[in-house]
Each structure stands twice: as structure tokens, then as C-alpha cells.
Simulated assay, not measured.
Amino acid sequence: MQRFEDHDELTETEASGGVKEHGVRYVLGISLFLAIGLLSIMWIIPAANSSG
């Protein structure tokens, strides 16, 4: 980090906290897919049983 009179300048790594991995993207995608699947099952099963 370089300090100037009225501001500090950070490098790209310092500004991002050093995190460059994309694992979070996969966790969020899988979680979203599972949540949609679970909520769909919770909706479809009662609807199929009550229509008969």
C-alpha cells in the first residue's frame, strides 16, 4: 500500500483480500439448484395427492 497525503493506493491483491478462487460460485450454484429442487418437491407432492 502506498500512502499519499490525501489517500492510500492499494494493489489489486490488497483490495480484493487476496481471494481469487471461484469455489464460492460453485457452492452458491449447487445450493440454489438444491433449494429449487426441494421446494418444487414440497409443492408437487401435496398438489398431486390432493388432485385425485
Score class of each variant (00 low, 15 high):
Val19Gln: 13
Ile44Asn: 02
Ser16Pro: 00
Phe4Pro: 00
Glu21Lys: 09
Asn49Met: 13
Leu10Asn: 00
Lys20Ile: 04
Leu28Val: 13
Asn49Pro: 02
Gly17Cys: 02
Leu34Ser: 15
Asp6Ile: 03
Tyr26Cys: 11
Val24Arg: 12
Ala47Ser: 05
Ala35Cys: 14
Gly17Phe: 03
Ala48Thr: 05
Gly52Leu: 10
Glu9Tyr: 01
Ala48Pro: 00
Ile30Gln: 07
Glu12Phe: 11
Gly52Asn: 05
Glu5Val: 09
Arg3Tyr: 13
Asp8His: 04
Val27Arg: 13
Ser40Met: 06
Leu38Ile: 12
Met1Ile: 01
Arg3Glu: 11
Met42Tyr: 13
Phe33Ile: 15
Met42Ser: 12
Ser31Gly: 14
Ser16Asn: 10
Glu14Gly: 08
Ile30Ser: 13
Gly52Gln: 08
Gly23Asp: 13
Leu10Tyr: 06
Leu39Trp: 09
Glu5Ala: 15
Trp43Phe: 12
Trp43Cys: 10
Lys20Phe: 09
Ser31Arg: 07
Ser51Ala: 09
Ala35Asp: 06
Leu34Ile: 11
Ile36Lys: 03
Phe4Ile: 00
Val27Asn: 05
Ile44Ser: 05
Gly52His: 08
Phe4Ser: 01
His22Glu: 08
His22Ser: 08
His22Lys: 09
Ile45Ala: 09
Val24Gly: 14
Glu21Gln: 09
Leu10Thr: 00
Asp6Leu: 09
Gly29Asp: 05
Trp43Glu: 10
Glu14Leu: 02
Ser51Ile: 07
Ser50Ala: 10
Ala35Tyr: 10
Glu9Phe: 06
Glu14Phe: 01
Val27Ile: 15
Val24Trp: 12
Ser31Glu: 04
Gln2Glu: 07
Lys20Pro: 00
Ile41Leu: 14
Leu28Thr: 10
Leu28Gln: 12
His22Thr: 06
Ala47Met: 03
Ala48Asp: 05
Asp8Pro: 00
Leu28Pro: 02
Val27Asp: 08
Glu12Val: 09
Ser40Tyr: 05
Gly18Ser: 07
Gly52Trp: 03
Ser51Pro: 00
Arg25Glu: 10
Ile45Cys: 08
Ile45Asp: 02
Gly37Cys: 06
Leu32Gln: 06
Asp8Ser: 03
Thr13Ile: 07
Glu21Phe: 06
Phe33Pro: 04
Met1His: 03
Leu32Glu: 07
Ile44Lys: 07
Tyr26Asp: 12
Leu10Ile: 00
Ser51Leu: 04
Ala35Ile: 15
Arg25Ala: 14
Ile44Ala: 15
Arg25Val: 08
Ser40Asn: 04
